[in-house]
Nucleic acid binder design. Structure first.
Lengths: 213, 213
DNA sequence: ATGTTCATGTGTACACTGTCCACAAGAGTA
DNA sequence: TACTCTTGTGGACAGTGTACACATGAACAT
């Protein structure tokens, strides 16, 4: 019963939860070096297990990366929800809905800046509309980032800020805008700008979305 | 003088222009498989040269990828300029300026869809504001994509569509938006959507920029 | 308790990668 | 003609993903 979970030393032949251990190791590597740093052999090493053991849980190195990537998306969702919590409803339904959409944006960018490795990893694996709401990509509260944008937009429609006829597909506009900014901040021309400058750029961008949606 | 350029067979000891040949090989690999497919040894193989010969021209595999990436950005610029050409000025300066910005967007997305591998490669290497206008990233007409957005925005200011006080930093908004859509189309939730659907999403996004800038 | 089964981990091996080192070829110059 | 410096070669090594055959032991049926 002395189940040394996180520690790589183990006495039993069976690991206990190797799959989870590999994913956690993968996330840690991704945090430091992005998707390229997610190395299968290194993950098994950190889990204190032989390289081939990984193949009992993942068909491929890419399969591991896929799961790691999904996990990272879940973290992004958590970060966005944290932003929600930081701006609780005031009672002004319209302003609250607006703030909700902004929170998606600021949370998203915050995640990109605080965890660039995880951010890059989250979007290094091809996705599609079917998988966008997949439970494996959800955060602690069970929602994916993509669903969170949708929620914010629904609130905008409910309070009459956004005309219903503009609702369908609106997540793509909001998403693309914020995602683009995230990429620019991490790997693009905006790299190395000071925090206040990035904050300003974020605010302007969200203003644009607010006006133009 | 029988300089068999593109062919990998060569008679002389010296290659002639190995550096260029390696870059071209790299671009071809990037076209098929994105940045991960840019393999140094394979490039030398295609150039008909031993693996280590590459190190006379690039310090690193990453150095090669950097140059390949810059080249891809140049292609993106070409694609955008082609979109300019497809929509020549009509005489209505205001409408022309608007169309110019739209062309940046449609050209950009067009490039992403037509050459996903090159697009991914172009943005796989970290960049910064200093390098954004670097000549190595320019297209045939000597302008980088980033500079082309700037040009379009300048035209909007010149025709009075965009208030001058909003000009500084506006390329970041335009760029982020379009870049984000590009990523969504290639690797994100919008992957696999039909062309008309993507066209519609692009139009809506550009409308948003037009309204909200 | 005992034997069997089958998921899970091990060991060996191979092809392939990036990269280091010492050496070779030969174009350009003294 | 001899010397030099750039460019390409050959061999080697560590590290990676992954295939195959084998070992272990937890769970379950007897």
């Amino acid at each position: 019963m002395s189940d040394e979970r996180a520690v790589n030393a183990r006495t039993t032949y069976r690991h206990g939860d190797l799959r989870e251990a590999l994913v956690e190791a993968g996330v840690e590597m991704a945090r430091e070096g992005g998707p390229r740093a997610v190395v299968l052999r290194e993950a098994t090493r950190r889990a204190g297990v032989s390289p081939n053991a990984a193949y009992r849980h993942f068909t491929d190195r890419d399969a591991l990366l896929q799961v790691v990537s999904d996990t990272c998306l879940g973290f992004a969702a958590d970060r966005i929800e944290a932003e929600f919590d930081a701006h609780p409803p005031t009672g002004d339904a319209e302003a609250d809905a607006r703030m909700m959409l902004r929170s998606v944006g600021t949370g998203y960018i915050g995640f990109a800046r605080e965890e660039p490795g995880l951010f890059r990893t989250a979007f290094s694996v091809p996705d599609n509309l079917q998988r966008a709401g997949d439970a494996s990509k959800a955060g602690r509260r069970g929602r994916t980032p993509f669903q969170l944008v949708g929620l914010a937009l629904d609130a905008l429609v409910a309070t009459g800020v956004l005309p219903p006829e503009r609702r369908p597909g609106a997540e793509f506009q909001a998403w693309a805008t914020v995602h683009g900014l995230g990429m620019l901040v991490i790997d693009g021309p905006l790299r190395g700008l000071t925090d206040p400058m990035i904050d300003a750029a974020t605010e302007r961008l969200l203003d644009m979305v607010d006006r133009g949606l």
